[in-house]
Write a protein that binds this DNA or RNA. Structure first.
Lengths: 108, 108
DNA sequence: TTGACATAGTACCTTTTGGTATCATATAAA
DNA sequence: TTTATATGATACCAAAAGGTACTATGTCAA
């Protein structure tokens, strides 16, 4: 049912890629926009974006001569599904989640 | 507050290491026990276990001439904490979590 | 104490990874 | 239509990753 999380885990294994995801969570960015945030070359960023795309963490649309990168949660779902198995060993977390949901309720 | 998840993400990026964690979730295992489950040499398994230990995914205790590996969730917590940031973009998950907690309640 | 067993440690090999530099192509703007 | 800009595509490089083989050490058992 849940797809292979390998590409997703691979995508998340690099700190630069994780940082890119945080940036993209705030707003879509062109490749140039992303490059401006880091101290590596465009080529390196391009490779990171490709790996994020392969892990279904982002989607890309062409806009004129720009390529706009957009956060996509499908790949992250595959990774989280893998994690879900371990929930049974981790009661501590249930308390925090319960609270998170209570808070969510209060906002409605 | 939450520690650097890098070693944790690194530990989870390999499919053999993830499979080892699943095995260890069922029962503690010596290195030899783990080796028996996979088709790679002891040396390779030893390296995987070291990386899992560095990511705080497992702890190891010496028992006679054996080294017993035990699932440890601290490292996984660091990784999950990183994920928590993205919960806000993922309403779909909240429904499933709510249900998980309801089920938990029913078991008490 | 001696032999078998479980693991540690090292050297070595191949592939992948993260990175750079360079050149080519497509598009927007003067 | 030039020219500057945004990206694509290659080739190349050093280091890390995943693996093997071999040797050394510590511990249990006969």
């Amino acid at each position: 049912m849940s797809s292979d999380p390998q590409e997703g885990f691979r995508a998340l294994s690099d700190p630069t890629r994780r940082a890119i995801l945080i940036h993209l969570s705030r707003h879509d960015m062109s490749i140039g926009d992303v490059v401006a945030e880091f101290d590596v070359t465009r080529g390196a960023i391009k490779k990171h974006l490709l790996i994020l795309e392969q892990g279904d963490m982002i989607s890309v649309r062409t806009q004129g001569r720009e390529r706009i990168n957009h956060l996509e949660l499908h790949g992250m779902k595959a990774v989280r599904d893998w994690f879900a198995y371990f929930d049974q060993f981790w009661d501590e977390r249930l308390g925090a989640l319960k609270q998170a949901i209570e808070n969510k309720k209060d906002n409605h």
